[in-house]
């Protein structure tokens, strides 16, 4: 069995600080793989290393049979790995529509975007209403929708989401977490980093627990959610 994304023994350092050590992880194919862990456990760094924004010191990152390590970020995006960064990365001085159009930049066939835009608007009707507004004028929830919608415009094979629930009101979190499983059901592979471990494990098939830059647990999401240690540390059980 070859996984769509296979990360092997990944090491990342920021100066003297070892951010990731010997991290191995598989995204087998369509479906959601969740990464949970405390602040500073290396979750975001893992996504940043996969998308090429931070260099890996050692290890391998293979995607669809091809090595991504040492590729620049734009080549990784063009290979079909699209990363929605923490903080969403909305281009505030461009309109919603322009942000969405830029999402298709990574594609070779970016001629007619009508169908892709319609699909994004079907997931997030609010973006259609706001398409002439500047990205910076959107609320946090709308920006998250825009960030995910923009990523979908690239027609990714692997979507990496970093903390999509961060800073959002509970109602909006639910809205976002309604859409993510639908995308996975449509055949998209999703690598989901979340502090909200309960929501993440509820929709994921598999999960990894990161602690100070290492994978300390890995298993089916349901098993992790039932694990007393995970419950105690990440699900707020007493």
């Amino acid at each position: 069995m070859t996984a769509l994304l296979a990360v092997r023994d990944l090491d990342v350092r920021y100066g003297q600080i070892q951010a990731l050590r010997d991290v191995s992880l598989d995204v087998p194919g369509p479906g959601i793989v969740a990464i949970i862990g405390a602040n500073g456990s290396g979750k975001s760094t893992l996504l940043r290393a996969i998308s090429g924004i931070v260099p890996a010191r050692a290890g391998e990152i293979d995607f669809a049979g091809r090595s991504l390590r040492r590729l620049p970020p734009h080549r990784i995006a063009r290979a079909g790995v699209v990363h929605v960064p923490e903080g969403r990365g909305i281009l505030a001085r461009m309109t919603v529509l322009e942000n969405l159009e830029l999402g298709a930049f990574a594609r070779r066939d970016r001629g007619d975007l009508t169908a892709d835009l319609a699909r994004v608007y079907a997931h997030f009707p609010r973006l259609a209403e706001r398409r002439r507004q500047l990205g910076g004028s959107l609320s946090g929830g709308e920006q998250q929708m825009l960030a995910i919608g923009r990523a979908l415009m690239a027609r990714p094979r692997l979507l990496m989401l970093d903390e999509p629930s961060l800073g959002l009101a509970p109602l909006l979190v639910r809205e976002i977490f309604d859409v993510i499983p639908r995308l996975a059901a449509d055949g998209l592979a999703v690598l989901l980093v979340e502090q909200n471990a309960r929501m993440a494990l509820a929709c994921a098939a598999e999960g990894y627990v990161l602690q100070t830059g290492r994978v300390v647990l890995h298993g089916r999401a349901a098993d992790l959610a039932a694990n007393p240690a995970v419950q105690h540390a990440y699900l707020g059980a007493t």
Binding site: S51, G52, I53, P72, P73, H74, A77, R78, V82, H83, P85, G89, L91, A92, R93, M94, E98, E101, L102, G103, F105, A106, R107, R110, R150, A154
Partner: peptide, 23 residues
Amino acid sequence: WLGRAIRATAENPTVASLLGVNV
């Protein structure tokens, strides 16, 4: 597309690169 890539780079080079722009 060139203009969009330039404007994205001007606003946020990291985000531009994640969108597939060769900065």
